[in-house]
Nucleic acid binder design. Sequence first.
DNA 1: TTCGTTTGTTAGATTAGTCTAACAGAAATA
DNA 2: TATTTCTGTTAGACTAATCTAACAAACGAA
Lengths: 260, 260
Amino acid sequence: MFNTGSDITGSLEDYLETIYRILGRSSVARVRDIAEEMQVTPASVSPAMKRLSEKKLIRYSKRNYIELTEKGLFIARRTMTRHNLLSRFLTEILGISREQAENDACAMEHYLSDSSMERLAAFFEFLAACPELQVLIKTGFGNCLENETEYLFRCSKSICPLMVHDDKDNIGLELLCLIDLEPGSSRKIARINAAQKIRRQLIDSGFIQGARVILIRPGTTDLPFIVRLDGYDQELPAAMAECVLVYPDCEGTGENDNEE
Amino acid sequence: MFNTGSDITGSLEDYLETIYRILGRSSVARVRDIAEEMQVTPASVSPAMKRLSEKKLIRYSKRNYIELTEKGLFIARRTMTRHNLLSRFLTEILGISREQAENDACAMEHYLSDSSMERLAAFFEFLAACPELQVLIKTGFGNCLENETEYLFRCSKSICPLMVHDDKDNIGLELLCLIDLEPGSSRKIARINAAQKIRRQLIDSGFIQGARVILIRPGTTDLPFIVRLDGYDQELPAAMAECVLVYPDCEGTGENDNEE
DNA sequence: TTCGTTTGTTAGATTAGTCTAACAGAAATA
DNA sequence: TATTTCTGTTAGACTAATCTAACAAACGAA
Ligand SMILES: [Mn+2]
Ligand SMILES: [Mn+2]
Ligand SMILES: [Mn+2]
Ligand SMILES: [Mn+2]
């Protein structure tokens, strides 16, 4: 569907990656092993091996063992590396579960460009070399995982005073709530102060940090607010609208005004 | 090829996303507009609209304007949001060019799971609320862009003393170079101290921060080093091997020993 | 109203990737 | 050696996505 960077499809990259993985731990790779590891039938692997052979990415004569060529080895390794980078980003930075991260990474890996890959690798080098960053991410962000009722940032004051959350009054110190805006005002979103379903719904609807919203019509408990986002007017029940925190002034929203 | 989270393909998600984008700025969406925006022929759009219609994601009767249904709007918005999150991550955090970021994001968006999406959104909220993190990423990491000859981290001492780079002797203070290891020693990679082609080659080959390497055979200027990575022995010319910096002790590599 | 231009659809081809079912070869076992 | 089991291939079907070329409808002048 999209370019993969190498001139083969994502599916073939996965076959190469799987072969690479198998050959890294055992001496031979067979159709059976590949089928099992990739959760496809052997009948799918056979023609895939033929396609890889034609492209000179593996050496394979029917019913024999499978070997990677130089070129195949290169693509396999690069795919594996992108997989690892993405998977580590998802687990170590974002705090996603290993299994989910593996899934996401293995699907996205085929579309991460060389330059993005290189910068992501650099990010881990930077992180490893910078203890302050580690603390902020692991202790600060890592602790703000979603719980049953609230989605809180639990930074220590010394690290991140703006996000202190011990006394409720401090939440979003100079932030406004969407429901407190004048009709017609346009603001950028700072934070979604909700958890679970409401948070998910708001994010799915495009309410993410930095997005610009315009309050078209204020609402009440019974009458939904109407908010414009991406050029669309959408209704928002009061319960959801009051979870959207925005920056106070129309322009100069801290640092994020580099939008067109 | 992979699941998309919604029960439609990535291609159809893109059609919805495009329709959403068009309807956000103009009053009608026509086959022509979609074809143009997506760089496909109108002959590809027609059957796609039919597929979307069958799935009740758009309302479309032949030769009329195209409208999103509730369900279609939802998927479109979610796709758009994931696109924006990924694109912003690539540009704002990693420093990728807008165009490249758009490409990567629009390809990867279909495979970012709900939980990863939610955490990525949270990351931006955290970033926006945490000035220290902004400084570290924008000033610290943002400045370590690849240049012609070197790949340097240019943090200020006060922020990130380990990475000071003013006097060469300070590079990787307590880090070792791969070429200085005893044969047989196993270490984790801390940093690739190279830029451009050499850096790219090493990363493509799997030499990323946190990866474990074993020096199998030392080399010389003429004889390549042999290094084991992912269970594979690979040759590494001295010029490349000396760019690989590893953590000094076998275990206890700072903080990154949470591998199996 | 007629005629070209724009716009959209359809037919037909192609590529890719998956499956089930049937078959074939090789290895293990009796 | 004969038979069973394991392994891999092939045939045939299906879905999705794209294209080119041909056609059809609608629109806008003239
Ligand atoms: Mn993959
Ligand atoms: Mn993978
Ligand atoms: Mn896309
Ligand atoms: Mn997109």
